[in-house]
Simulated assay, not measured.
Amino acid sequence: MEPYQNAPTGDFVLPFDVVDAGVRGRFVRLDATSARALSVHALPELAARVAGEVLALSALLGSALKLDGRLTVQTKSDGPLDIVAADYYGASGGKPKGVRGFARLDDEVTLAEKPLFAALTGAGSLAITIEPVRGGQTYQGIVDLSPKGIAASAETYFEQSEQLPTLIRLAAAPVFTPGSKEPHWRAAGLMLQATPGVRRGADDWDRLSSLAGTVEDLELLDTTLTAETLLWRLFNQEEVRVLPAEEITFRCDCDGERIATVLKSYTEAERANLADADGVIRAKCEFCGTVHEIGKARLS
């Protein structure tokens, strides 16, 4: 058996189990990955925090499924921050596990210093969609957005769809470095969940979820605090089995050829309306910022 290697400082998911208690968990910390994902659209800090939390949640949920396709976490609501979406891609076709994210905020809205989550997003829903590449069917679960935030909404999803006791903690924050005007965004999350079909003591879940609930945002996000040290802080009275960390990177599967294929189904007049003065249709990916240029030759 190969010796255990500590998780990296960032851009990983670390699975773990509290075996005797019948509880499993995952810890995700994104650094360069979240910074890249949140750099495409300049958002006010409060809105970017929500987008970062959704990004971390997609990594927690997607990596738990051993997915070869895509898992999408998306909010739709009637508030100023009306859409937030994040995709987790499983490793496939030589591509690594990765995430990407997007958020839309009403440009006309000036956010108060500390608006409540409910005021920022308004009423709406949180949808989790699973699209496997091989085998199985697309699945989607939808719950109402909780006024308490993204983590509370995700806990409600598991309560309603899986009937599994679940605790989720999410955090996102900007890191400012000397010489840089733009913040470097980190995002992180911790998920604790009862293992299906495993017997537990009467107070095991209550005890462990209470311990996990004490975790601070700074502990989740601090890259100088190792993942193993954080788990020891939380569960030092328990026997925790830590599995190898899984690397997470930024990944966007936008495809200019796929866009061209869609445009071929448009009429010539419709394509003319979409084209710039030079006759080229330019489609910008909202997730990675890439501008795909589709000329007439590609549409013939």
Rank of each mutant, 00 (worst) to 15 (best):
L299I: 03
L61Y: 03
R282V: 08
L299S: 01
L46Y: 10
S77P: 09
L221E: 03
N273D: 12
A86Q: 09
L164R: 15
Y157P: 01
T33L: 10
A297Q: 12
D68H: 08
G135A: 06
P147Y: 06
A7Y: 14
A269Q: 08
D255T: 05
S265Y: 08
A269F: 11
F12G: 01
E182L: 11
Y4F: 14
V240P: 01
V242T: 07
T226D: 11
A275N: 13
T249V: 15
I83V: 14
D78E: 15
K95L: 14
V198I: 14
A47K: 06
A283P: 00
V280D: 05
P80R: 05
F158G: 00
F16K: 00
V280Q: 01
D106C: 03
T156M: 14
S92V: 08
A51C: 15
D68Y: 04
K76Q: 15
Y4N: 02
Y88G: 06
G22I: 05
T177V: 11
A91L: 08
R70H: 04
I281D: 01
K181D: 15
T195F: 09
I294N: 00
K114T: 01
D278P: 06
Y139T: 12
A51H: 14
P15A: 12
A188H: 00
D217G: 04
A194I: 01
A51N: 13
E219F: 07
R134M: 09
G213H: 08
T249G: 11
T72W: 01
Q160E: 15
T226N: 03
H184L: 09
G201E: 12
D255M: 09
Y89W: 07
S146Y: 05
P115H: 11
A85L: 07
E2D: 12
Y88N: 03
V19Y: 07
G25A: 03
L230I: 09
T226H: 15
V19Q: 10
T249N: 13
T177W: 12
Q137F: 14
V175G: 04
L57P: 01
A154T: 10
P15N: 02
D107Q: 12
T267C: 12
